[in-house]
Design a protein around this nucleic acid. Sequence first.
DNA 1: CGCGATTCTAACGAATTCTTACAGCTTCGC
DNA 2: GCGAAGCTGTAAGAATTCGTTAGAATCGCG
Lengths: 236, 236
Amino acid sequence: MNADLPLVAILDDEPEIRRMLSDALEEAGFRTQSYARATEFEAGLKRSSPDVCLVDLGLPDRDGLALVHRLALESGAAIIIISGRAQVQDRVTGLELGADDYIIKPFDPTEVVARIRARLRKGRTESPSVSQTAHFAGWSAHFDRYLLIDEAGRETSFSHAEGEVLRLFLESPNRLITRAQMQESLGGAAGESFDRAMDVRISRLRTKLGEDPKNPRLIKTIYGAGYIFLGEVRWG
Amino acid sequence: MNADLPLVAILDDEPEIRRMLSDALEEAGFRTQSYARATEFEAGLKRSSPDVCLVDLGLPDRDGLALVHRLALESGAAIIIISGRAQVQDRVTGLELGADDYIIKPFDPTEVVARIRARLRKGRTESPSVSQTAHFAGWSAHFDRYLLIDEAGRETSFSHAEGEVLRLFLESPNRLITRAQMQESLGGAAGESFDRAMDVRISRLRTKLGEDPKNPRLIKTIYGAGYIFLGEVRWG
DNA sequence: CGCGATTCTAACGAATTCTTACAGCTTCGC
DNA sequence: GCGAAGCTGTAAGAATTCGTTAGAATCGCG
């Protein structure tokens, strides 16, 4: 009965689906309330205000779309439609009546959880919990803190320009990155002698990574072509 | 060139898809910008800040998920992934990395439009937080009492001007805040050299937060761009 | 080996940002 | 009112970032 956990209201007439959803959601850290019929569902809304409503459109006792429409107007909750009707037109009208998402049966509970999380994330002022960290060759690069941390835990800060280069490498490791691609990606305006600036950026980055100039192990220069960042990179 | 219309940035390497999307979106009342490659796309983001980003995951020059990840942290835009990969796991990781929606190819442009509308609708409804207290990095900021309280319960008062800056940071943590945004938000109407005043406000705030000038942990300067406030922030 | 093309890096300098000092202004207590 | 204290912007010099320059080092190719 933890009031801090987000509350998800489920409206579906099939018991197995209700069960499947509530199991998956509770395991994922949500509270749930299940309803089989629209009238019960609406009564429940008056007692508690859920953060997310999962609504099956194929209801026996009510026009699901009308319900969605009203929910969208009256409740602040995120509304996700679950439906067996897969036609584009169905989805479009559902979304236009105010739903925030539209999931087609049969569905995977994992995806439902992910979509609910995506909805809640936007609504909150809280920062997204996705970390912005890459691990490689004994280093951890924290792009949010502009910090490199080595195996021993020693910290080295890097500047924004250096970070741009490092990120570009870590996003495409073991792949040739041409100077042209870099220039474009790093906002290099026109093709003048911006090349030199990039050399310098990379040079500074290499020293921060403790590369041996004679024998760079991470950032390889491909003469006449560009650079390759070598190594296993893991994000997160 | 109506700046009031929402701007949608499209990133897809297939020309037909770009065309199809931009046609549908423009007919639906959006402005669009199309890009074939990630590097161009990122360069475009620096010039204009779209309200929605449509990103194809199958990019030739970059790991699409890494790009999405970064977008989610740095841009306030809604992010919609378009992908040929239909596996549940693909969708879940996409959403967990910060995407707001995930559309599978082949898709119907009408549905894309509807989903974009649904996203934008939610963004506008975002209710302003009425709480006057924020917690972050061991600090509690009480805006109603102009008081900062650290873990040990020691109190430090802050001024109105300092509070304006602090609130701006705490309302969008882990996101770049440009000097222009600050100036606008803090009512710095006149003064072209209002920038200096800004510097001083931030400097004073930093000392009150006990930041190490060499290595600020909370308020990072992005040379030539603005500032980022780092950390988990909880309001209330 | 020699030569031109390419890349590296140390040093410099312009732009930007930080910090300290100071002055004008408001607020508060008396 | 008066003076002290605090707030806030301006000014000025220090510090940082980062592109540019230039000379050295390296590479590819004969």
